[in-house]
Amino acid sequence: MNETARPYYWAFISLCGAVIAVYILFPIFWLFLASFKTRDQLAQLPIAFWPEEPTLQAYRDLFDSGSQSSQLLNWPTLISNSFTVAVTSTIIVVILGTFAGYAFARLKFPGRDLILGGLLVSRMFQGAALLLPTYRLMNTLGLQDSLLGLILLYSAFGLPFATWIIASSLREIPVELEESAMMDGASRLQAMFLVVLPLATPALITAAMWHFVGAWSEFAFASILLESSANKTVTIGLASFVELFTLEFQKVGAAATLVAMPIMVVFFFGQRYFTRGLLAGAVKG
């Protein structure tokens, strides 16, 4: 590409990016704005984009124990269940993924690369095909309708990718650093914790974020495994909520915003690491 074409090229790329972003984000933003409107304002024609008198009433309704919506769905319980499942499985996945990733990156054993590749491929079978077998497995194990079952399931689903991403980032860290630490008097474990893992923080954070977001927003498996209302998670709550309150769209908006909040917070604080961690395997430097 010659020098004069360059600015146009970047302008074009940026424009495409902006269009895609608007296309994807508009419905979400619309829902977000709706949560600050009143029911009447939502019903009026022509449709108003911005809330006329922004109100937090919809949010209050979610949590006011007296309100109709909070009697049907207990949001504090849903949120706490989702946090329990997402945080616990994230911790499990990051810890096991770190050790497994380290083994794949540093130790030599037969079939190592095949297994590592297989881990990634295994993620492609996920989805509807696994729903029924998983349901029966969980029943057999007596883990249906329990958060523990969901935690174990999410951890199993999340581990391959976490292992893979951590392994590829550890491979980028020169092995001499560890050897040097061992010469300095470190055991292998000390070398790992004091030298290798601090350098792999972006990958660890990426793996954690990736898993947390996936676990927080998982719907299909949660919906077939969880039955009692005391055990439901936010995504299931949101789905029933949409059915129950189609006419009170401001509440749907409020609930959706609430559910999306942790994900946004996670990305806000982690995005620096996120791109770096994902690129770790691809780019040297």
Binding site: L177, E179, M182, M183, S187
Partner: peptide, 18 residues
Amino acid sequence: PPKRRDIAMVFQNYALYP
């Protein structure tokens, strides 16, 4: 193991902890 040999090593790429 290396840690119990009382030997220090300087590597070609220095291997300083970044």
